[in-house]
Amino acid sequence: MSTRSEEEAKKTPYELYIAPRPFSFELDSEMLVLLRKDCDPPLIVEKFAAEISGKKQDDVDTIAKKVFGKYGEDWMRRTLKLGEEYPDRTYEILKEAVDKTGEMKFPLVLQRFIEIAYLGTQQFRILPIVENWAKRLVYRVKDCYIYKLEVEKCGQEVAGSLPCRYACLAACKTALDGLGLDAAVEMEATMVKDGACQFALNRI
C-alpha cells in the first residue's frame, strides 16, 4: 500500500531540517538589562513623588498625565528600538509568518513589544495575555512594581487614583503608532477594584 503523500515524498529528495543556528527563542537578557537601566520604575516614581509634594489634590492628575504620559512614551520608544536591535528566533519566525500571510502584525508583533516593555521593567516572569486575536489584544498587569512603589512613596490615597495608568496607556498608544497599527486603547480593569490592571487594544 502506498499513499499519495508518500509517492510525492519519494519524488522529492529527503532533506533533514536543521534549525539555522543555535539561537534563543526567549528574550535577550542584555536587552532587558539595558531597558531596565533606561526606564527604571523607582526613578520615575521618585520623580513623580517630588513633583506632587506640596501640590493640591486637584493638580495631582494633571501632573500624573504629564509625568507618566511622558515616561510611557519614552519607555515604549526605547522598547521598540531595543526590540529590533536584539531579535530572537521567535521574532524571526513571527516575521516570516507576517510576511507570508500579511496578517498577525496585530496582535502578535504588538504583543511581542508589549511583553518586552513589561518584562524589562517589572518584577514578574510572564505577562499574562488574556486575548490575542485579529480584533483584540488584551493583557493583565498583576503585582505591579510601579504601583507598589507608589504606595510606598506617595501613600495609599495617591496610589489608589492610579496616576501610573497614564504610563501604560501612553505606552500602548506609542506602540501602535510605532508599528503603524490602528486600535483603540481601553482600560478594562483596575488594580484598585479588580486586583489587576487590564488593558485592551481593540480593533472592533
Binding site: 511581542r112 510572564i126 490575542n132 486575536w133
Partner: peptide
C-alpha cells in the same frame, strides 16, 4: 477567545 491566548516569552 480567552482560551487561545498565551504569552510569548518567559523569563528564566
Amino acid at each position: 477567545p480567552r482560551n487561545y491566548a498565551r504569552h510569548m516569552y518567559t523569563l528564566p
